[in-house]
Design a protein around this nucleic acid. Sequence first.
DNA 1: ATAGGGTTAG
Length: 819
Amino acid sequence: MTSIVNSRASFHSNSLVSISDANDSYKPVLGKQNYISCIKNGETMEFNAKKLRLDYCIIPRINDINGAGAHSSTYPDLLHLLSRNTQSSLSQVRQMHAQMLRTGLCDLPHYRTKLFSLYSNHHRFSDAKNLLRSILKPDLLSFTALINASSKFNDFKNTLILFSQMLTNGLYPDAHVLPSIIKACAGLLAVKIGEQVHGFSLASGLSLDPFVESSLIHFYVKCDKLIGAHKLFDKMVERDVVSWSALAAGYARKGDVINAKKVFSEVKIFGFEPNTVSWNGMIAGFNQSGCFLDAVLMFQQMHLHGFTSDGTSISSVLPAIGDLGYLNAGTQVHGYVIKIGFAVDKCIVSALIDMYGKCGCALEMSQVFEDIGQADVGACNAMIAGLARHGLVDKALTVFKELQGQGMELNVVSWTSVIACCSQHGKDIEALNIFREMQAAGVKPNSVTIPCLLPACGNIAALMHGKAAHCFSLKRGISGDVYVGSALIDMYANCGKIQAARCCFDRMPARNLVCWNTMLGAYAMHGKAKEAIEIFHCMQRSGQKPDSVSFTSLLSACSQSGLTEEGHSYFESMSKDHGIEARVEHYACIVTLLGRAGKLEEAYSMIKKMPFEPDACVWGALLSSCRLHHNMSLGEVAAGKLFELEPKNPGNYILLSNIYASKGKWKEVDKVRDIMRDMGLRKNPGCSWIEVKNKVHMLLAGDKSLPQMAQILDKLNRLSMEMKKAGYLPNTNYVLQDVEEQEKEHILCGHSEKLAVVFGILNTSQGSPLRITKNLRICGDCHAVIKFISRFERREIFVRDTNRYHHFKDGDCSCGDYW
DNA sequence: ATAGGGTTAG
């Protein structure tokens, strides 16, 4: 951020004043030239507004314009008239400028300042800047006019550049220009510059100005430093409606509804009346912090108090309405928007599209989008997100392509939306490709882009891509963000790099519940119960209360590792000590926990004792356990329930058939297969991904189109001969098709996870680990084969299936043969 | 002259 005040002139970094505890300990003193000092705890700190030369280019003076020649004394009046009349055209301003140059009025700061304001009001910053360059010794008034104007038009970068030029000219800000500079720092979240400016205001005594104080409060609120804002507020001698409103909005932004409302109502006690801007600040703050209902209620109350909502209130309340799904309210606001003619406001249109999208109204959403005709980036972005929400991925991509095609300004939200759209709808490789395109287009990913992209890397275990995204976040300084951090933990865990996941976790400067839960989930996925339990206790020691998600991960980790006793006691303590009522997913974990330990009857009675209807996950947990322990009678009960709950899930039929096969009940196996055939169910095609040399390869079961297929099968045959020598028998129970044994063996050979392992062995250097992801649960035969391969080929092999991670090493698997 | 309020991505 410091680069915004460019290196040519800036507050000297050595004199950076830390403000965090400065409010009462700084006292300004007179400093030597160009230095302003302040005293902190008896120590003098110097503040250096460093001077650097600015090369001036002086524009030629216009000597005459078409013989226009009013007497010079009439210009001040004319100028006054022009600046009062907002309708004055740009050409009138230019003529005035020319005449002023001719008559020398341009040299008088007071008149010149008017000219700056006139140009700025016409958004002609380049003209204003040329005017600035033409002045030999620009004065504070000229800079003030320009800085205030660029700040007013939210051109904050320009504001700070001008500020730096002002310092270069040896000019110090006064109370009239500081608020605009501070506003720019707030808008750009330029924390360090803002704090230095605060230091300057303290040192110079300008911090006592109510305008400066209010803008500083807003600055700290915007930069998420509410405590600093409050300290300032407390020290204020005279508070007004602006300072109260800024603080109230600050609490609203933090989601502190109680304090926000308290401060907001205190305004009245102290004799002030909240105005439209005060109300808008509350609505926007509540919307930003996710207090959607409070935002909507504020909007309603605003009207009850006799205020009329303007464009700002509407574009702040619409997203809140959308999140609540209040279609009725949304439609009313839409009607109001049309009635008062706000349907041309770009922000409002985007907000309307967003609202309809969130309320599930794809048609209305598209209607608003089409009605604009010339859609801007915001509207397109809202549309992409809305289409993605409705699963209309292709349409979303079309809108994005149109946006690109029209040469509209290619922004980070659009790219992020479309990346999110892909990674959320199983188009992981597309997400990675679009991310690459985005970089090629010169758009820099931010702290939202990375968490949208990382799941795509994790889904297909594209470790190199994930690492590249990690590097990006380090370079962009966003790796400390809780969303980025959690997404990194998840990505590394999904790619099998549990230590790297832990490393990211340990390095986080701050953690919220999601970070802890992600780490817990990562250990659970890897079946590392000991570590999960450690994190669980660590979390509580750090003051973070676990929620029901934390317990799901903890219980799942215990069940994966066979920690039956521990899991059971955590389950009991959940409601007893933590006041969290067990949900269906917790029961599923307990059923798995008991089932794995062979306590199938106990698991079944647990299901019967559940305070609500067991769902497919619970019965699925029982059925899996029955398969593990070859329990046919309970397996049939569980399968029967599952066939009712999800008749079209082929996985359940396959599990039951596995149980029959293990007992040699071939007739029953046939029966299950016939049911599947009659229902038109087919086993989902198996699919595995492996990253080799930075490219992700997808392998389908029985894929004959693979160029290396002959080699792969050859290698697989040779491995299988070695395995048979070592006593391995292919487990054809896993083949459901009604074919000869020989053919069954052949089908097993075609399983995608085996293909991926062998593909990896053929294409990577000896001894390097292999990371594979599968779209189904790993097949039992493949599990046995990969265990063997890990020993025979001396490779660590990581296979993530839909259930968990399998880490094969030296002939064993981390799951202990339970999955 | 100057301060407080807006959409779209997780």
